[in-house]
Design a protein around this nucleic acid. Sequence first.
DNA 1: TTGATAGGCAAGTCGATACTTGCCTATGGT
DNA 2: ACCATAGGCAAGTATCGACTTGCCTATCAA
Lengths: 97, 97
Amino acid sequence: MTEDVFKALADPTRRRILDELVERDGQTLFEICARLVTKHGLGLSRQAISQHLAVLESAGLVVSRRQGRYKFHDLNTEPLERVMTRWLRPDPPESTP
Amino acid sequence: MTEDVFKALADPTRRRILDELVERDGQTLFEICARLVTKHGLGLSRQAISQHLAVLESAGLVVSRRQGRYKFHDLNTEPLERVMTRWLRPDPPESTP
DNA sequence: TTGATAGGCAAGTCGATACTTGCCTATGGT
DNA sequence: ACCATAGGCAAGTATCGACTTGCCTATCAA
């Protein structure tokens, strides 16, 4: 499960999606589609984004809550924090003393 | 260049290699091959590992120094540190007060 | 109830990438 | 000089992953 985080982050479109969600939580699929088109010029189908969101969700990086016909997506940074210290050595570089 | 870091981390074998290097720096290609076989049971060709090392090196996660007929590989965590704060919100969780 | 909106499922295409195999170069020991 | 060791290059295969297309379900508004 924690291994999927890396594969989820491997795709540039998925990283854009996380960028969007860190800026504003609770977006729907269509909102995210519109944002990616207007702000980043990405011309992707709705289904493509939906599949990306599924990958992010199964990696635990995105959680979703259904409400009526809307499905809101929230960023969850907790998997990142657990995973990113894996290769950090006990003695960090202290570049700014 | 910083984008390649994520793709480099996407492969489980490359993550194993980083695990090996964080444990002991300055290993050669053959040492890494042997370690992966004995410790993790990975039966990969030397060439496969070499290609993985090339990916890690072009992502800046591994630096190598040639010395005679040996090429020693060192871990470089600096690209990780720059990249991993990208989606962390200004308000960190403070789990241990 | 009808139509429009928000989203899901499934199959198919196509390019990327992980891995192998075979051969070549270079350094060091004897 | 010779052979073994450490590594590199290049082409081929085969699997995986991103994206599309077409159709289906569900919710809300008129």
